[in-house]
Design a protein around this nucleic acid. Sequence first.
DNA 1: TTAATAGAAGACAAACCCATCCTTTATTAT
DNA 2: ATAATAAAGGATGGGTTTGTCTTCTATTAA
Lengths: 144, 144
Amino acid sequence: MFSKTCEYAIRAMIFIAQKSKTGRKVGIKEIANAIDAPEYFIAKILQELGRKGLVQSLKGPTGGFYLEKEPSKCSLADIVKAIDGDNLFNGCGLGLKNCSEIRPCPIHNEFKIVRDEIHNMLKNARIGEFSKQLENNSIFLTRK
Amino acid sequence: MFSKTCEYAIRAMIFIAQKSKTGRKVGIKEIANAIDAPEYFIAKILQELGRKGLVQSLKGPTGGFYLEKEPSKCSLADIVKAIDGDNLFNGCGLGLKNCSEIRPCPIHNEFKIVRDEIHNMLKNARIGEFSKQLENNSIFLTRK
DNA sequence: TTAATAGAAGACAAACCCATCCTTTATTAT
DNA sequence: ATAATAAAGGATGGGTTTGTCTTCTATTAA
């Protein structure tokens, strides 16, 4: 469904959103540890998310990643779009470039329905909405 | 959503199902041409589908690919499972190995809903059901 | 039986994704 | 000011996916 990069990105952003609520910045090592992801790799991913304006960062001691916008402003769909592009939300299920209403592939209509549901689900999921559950340990970001 | 390999596989199977209705076998070149896919590549893919028992073939003159089972027996879900595996139908949206009801990721429940809808959509789509529309030119398998 | 045909199988190449390392730059605490 | 800290940026390697080519094997038509 999502690329590995994108999965890490979503997990990292949810974690940063939680920590950012207290005004605290989080370093790459802490993030990598918390979401059980390769350190150097999420460093790269967060660089990219930073360039896209989805996350902010500060260098030096006490530096790290944080969110300047309300975490409620950023949806999982925003992250997916930034990393994997919007092919998942707009593309043809069978990979046909010119698939459209007037030139549909065999599963065009059925696929569009589920595609839109995925899109809505991700648009409605805001990175800030999981903080309490994370603290409760009722949801998790690690592999194991 | 699906791998390129899987997209080609679905398109090829739908095409073979259509041609197979007349009892005719179709060659790789004809398939590659009809679904606008790289010839050598779908050859490989069809080999794999053959090993999995989803398609039959015969070598030599008048040989080619065909379906011995009713095309209505084979669903798109069968093809996806054969090529991409069933991670799409069972896996965690955020790539967590141990994500489950009792240890859910943040989007576990919402994701499961759309995942199941995709699965049902693909289970209900049989490769044989598109033949008439293909002949009508009301649906298409080529990129352009 | 022979020649032509067409898929099977194996090897190989290019592109992309995933992951790691190293140097540079910015910031802070002292 | 200086040293320590932490992210940014560039380079690089491994693995998988995608795509191609060549040889082998099975089948058919003549």
